[in-house]
């Protein structure tokens, strides 16, 4: 009787310990999974298509026409209003190359748009908003940032068009799937600044904008 009770107690103890071990393993496994993998589908390195490369080349040509001697030479005698007009003209010309129809362009202060934010694309009204403070300074480096931002935000417009509109001219099947997955689980910069930049749609927009602007001269010699 005593032996049976002791054996029963030992079995119960072993069952409890075993159960706790499984729970601990499960927690550790999920912790390891997350920290190692971090949902990799949001961080896909999708290659640019041939159509993207053609677009990039056309945009580079557009920049050479717009800033033949570099940004500083072009804007140094311009007022802020003239710089804004130049930006509107650049976006209008980019629309044809990007196969977009962005006509609403807003300029907002850093206070309104968010201090570290250079610009944004808003799908609800197909608009681009740019940080006017960067335009107001007669600073070619700041203007260079705005130009990079334009190509970046227009790429987001393309990504959005590709995943919402059948038959759109940009976005391969692979790209559209990767973008759709990411946009349905978008990581905001306000939440995680590093992973925000590494996620698929942001890495893609950065790559396109950087390729277009990499040879753009900023300052006069």
């Amino acid at each position: 009787m005593i032996i049976e009770t002791v054996l029963g107690g030992l079995l119960l103890y072993a069952a409890i310990e075993g159960g706790l071990a499984v729970i601990q393993w499960g927690y550790s496994a999920s912790k390891r999974y997350f920290t190692k993998h971090k949902y990799p589908e949001l961080f896909q390195d999708v290659q640019l298509s041939d159509k993207d490369k053609e677009m990039i080349e056309k945009c580079r040509e557009l920049l050479k026409e717009t800033f033949p001697e570099g940004i500083e030479a072009r804007i140094k005698d311009m007022s802020a209003d003239e710089r804004m007009a130049l930006i509107r003209e650049l976006i209008e010309k980019c629309n044809a190359i990007y196969d977009l129809d962005i006509t609403k362009i807003n300029f907002m202060s850093a206070y309104e748009i968010g201090g570290a934010t250079c610009g944004c694309y808003q799908s609800k009204d197909n608009s681009i908003t740019l940080n006017i403070d960067l335009i107001s300074f007669s600073d070619p480096t700041a203007m260079g940032i705005i130009i990079n931002t334009i190509f970046h935000e227009m790429r987001h417009a393309q990504q959005y068009r590709a995943i919402t509109t059948e038959g759109y001219s940009f976005g391969t099947d692979e790209q559209a799937k990767a973008w759709a997955i990411n946009f349905s689980h978008y990581i905001r910069a306000e939440v995680d600044m590093m992973l925000y930049q590494l996620q698929t749609v942001e890495a893609d927009a950065n790559r396109v904008a950087d390729e277009i602007t990499k040879e753009l001269k900023i300052k006069e010699e």
Partner: peptide
């Protein structure tokens, strides 16, 4: 790097296959 701002896209906005 400069920060832009995008929004999530709702599943019902996606084209049907996606």
């Amino acid at each position: 790097r400069n920060i832009g701002r995008m929004e999530s896209v709702r599943v019902d906005e996606l084209r049907p296959d996606l």
